[in-house]
């Protein structure tokens, strides 16, 4: 198997007295989709935000392409090529699609003025290459977009840059059937293009359909990382709800310790 592009070893994170992540290990492989599953409050979003540099980790190691890295802020995550599509999307309603896609990384022309032309062209190219046909104009305000369109913009924003790893936090949670289909296809295409993809989802059918690996978090501990081909929906559900299934998963002691 290929080397992981991103690897976590024994990561811990607390918010004051609340110990949210316990010794979490995680592997993300290039060209493959790793589903990150777990019940509400298991710590999935927190884990992703640690990788994005929004939160700092208390202890543990993050390795990018085998080398230890320290991610101190969103800019450093972006510099490594780690992009996140957040659960709550993180788009500015008062800005248009182009402005949102380039937020924080605007292009300049000479004299320090914003290079709106190039940004508009790049935004269009990216959306077109993702086969996005639902958006009429890239100069629409994001406030005027539907849920599926917003999701598309958020994903396009993540792949606009030379990204290597993309995490999507519940990208289909608020979408209808057709839009979910489109987003899942998009997720698969990202991996086929060689990116390492982390997909957080509660929908087991989606998970089994598009992912190559499944990583199950249980109360802030990594219960198991298994290849999707060697597991089943019922086993994953068991891992999510009890932290173990048969001979894989957390030891009873560890599972109880988190209670």
């Amino acid at each position: 198997m290929a080397e992981p592009i991103l690897e976590l070893r024994g990561v811990n994170k607390s918010f004051g007295p609340v110990h949210v992540l316990h010794d979490v290990d995680l592997h993300i492989y290039p060209g493959e989709v790793t589903a990150l599953v777990g019940d509400n409050g298991a710590g999935k979003s927190t884990l992703v935000k640690c990788l994005a540099g929004i939160y700092s980790i208390d202890s543990g190691e993050v390795l990018f392409e085998g080398k230890p890295v320290h991610i101190h802020g969103p800019a450093e995550a972006a510099a490594l090529g780690i992009e996140i599509v957040y659960q709550d999307l993180a788009l500015c309603d008062n800005l248009d699609i182009v402005q949102n896609m380039f937020l924080g990384r605007e292009l300049h022309s000479r004299f320090g003025a914003l290079d709106e032309g190039t940004m508009e062209r790049k935004a269009r190219e990216t959306l077109a290459s993702l086969s996005v046909r639902t958006v009429k104009s890239v100069r629409q305000l994001v406030a005027s977009l539907s849920g599926g369109q917003r999701q598309t913009v958020a994903i396009a924003k993540a792949v606009l840059w030379n990204s290597r790893v993309v995490f999507l936090d519940e990208p289909t949670a608020a979408l209808g059937v057709a839009q979910t289909r489109q987003v899942l296809d998009l997720v698969r295409r990202l991996a086929d293009a060689g990116l390492g993809v982390g997909l957080i989802s509660h929908n087991m059918n989606d998970v089994m359909e598009v992912s190559d690996h499944v990583a199950a978090l249980y109360l802030g501990r990594m219960a198991a990382e298994v290849p999707a081909s060697q597991t089943s929906v019922s086993q994953v559900v068991e891992l999510i709800t009890t932290g173990r299934s048969g001979d894989i998963g957390l030891s009873t002691a560890a599972a109880n310790a988190s209670m």
């Binding site: 190219e125 990216t126 077109a128």
Partner: peptide, 19 residues
């Protein structure tokens, strides 16, 4: 434009059509 590879087409030409 890594997305160009994603769709497996030239982004330039699709952009011209789509937008």
């Amino acid at each position: 434009t890594p997305a160009a590879d994603v769709a497996g087409t030239s982004a330039q030409s699709t952009a011209a059509v789509d937008f």
